[in-house]
């Protein structure tokens, strides 16, 4: 299968892109002994994860295994029962402004036009910047529409623009593509990958879709029974083409683990013949 060409970024001048601030590269994220219970349900059990700046990490796992909970903890929307979350070796709360969560549903305010949705929570003169990020996600012409007039995929792109305008250093994506059709999904995947490569933020992507995880991530983490079941570095060059033998091999290993078909050691590296420097960043 050939890669779908990405329609949004081709003709734009570099200066138009929302420029990353000087220090706006990704954060280092550390989870130490992270524990979360809801009453009697023990959702996360002493999770340890160290994520390097700018890394793209995909989190997969069965429904109800605690993926959203993990993301909401990192975003500060839930409080941990135990353990800590450190961003750049500081308590995560200090970096709340650097962290943006993109929810599974777009969560646009229906009473604000698209451009005003992008500018939510901003002060000063943000209108021009909001139009620029909308341009980045391919929605320049919808800036003055109402959210109800957009398709689901367009609404998701507005939500992405809304997160990006804050120049996040940590982007948390909770199944942002779950509700999209296959073609729109491919477009959005390319968009997210391109924006990540350009801005260099750290990404935590929760997904149900193992091929999507392998396509996008530097590292795939499988959550199971409240812990890390598999932590697999995906050392394949980008752009990755779907269904090549190397990609399929990694997908197979992740799937086996998710489905509980084999006992892969929990921390491994899946490397292609080419070295990591060949990857796009």
């Amino acid at each position: 299968m050939t890669r779908v060409t990405f329609p949004y970024r081709g003709t734009r001048r570099q200066s138009n892109v929302v420029a990353p601030e000087t220090s706006s590269t990704g954060v280092r994220l550390g989870l130490r002994g992270l524990d979360k219970r809801f009453g009697a349900t023990h959702v996360l059990d002493a999770i340890d994860l160290a994520i390097t700046p700018g890394q793209f990490v995909a989190i997969v796992g069965r429904s109800g295994c605690g993926k959203s909970t993990l993301l909401r903890l990192v975003a500060g929307l839930e409080t941990a029962t135990d353990g800590e979350i450190r961003v750049d070796d500081q308590p995560a709360a200090r970096h709340a402004a650097d962290t943006r969560l993109m929810f599974q549903d777009a969560r646009l305010l229906p009473w604000k036009r698209v451009v005003d949705n992008v500018g939510i929570g901003l002060r000063g003169r943000w209108q021009d910047r909001a139009r620029e990020v909308l341009h980045d996600v391919g929605l320049a012409d919808k800036a003055d529409a109402w959210p109800a007039q957009l398709s689901g995929g367009q609404q998701q792109r507005v939500a992405l623009a809304r997160a990006l305008i804050h120049r996040p250093r940590l982007l948390l994506l909770d199944e942002p593509l779950g509700a999209l059709d296959a073609l729109t999904r491919l477009e959005m995947q390319s968009l997210i990958e391109a924006l990540w490569q350009h801005h260099g933020f750290t990404v935590l992507l929760v997904t149900h879709d193992v091929p999507e995880a392998v396509q996008l991530a530097d590292r795939v983490v499988v959550l199971e029974q409240g812990g890390v079941g598999l932590d697999l570095a995906v050392d394949l060059p980008r752009p990755r083409e779907a269904a090549t033998p190397a990609v399929s091999a990694v997908e197979g290993r992740v799937l086996d683990r998710v489905l509980g078909r084999s006992d892969v050691p929990t921390s491994t590296t899946a490397s292609a013949t080419r070295s990591r420097t060949a990857s796009a960043r």
Partner: peptide, 8 residues
Amino acid sequence: EMARSYGL
């Protein structure tokens, strides 16, 4: 929740 997480 969204609005709060965007600082409102």
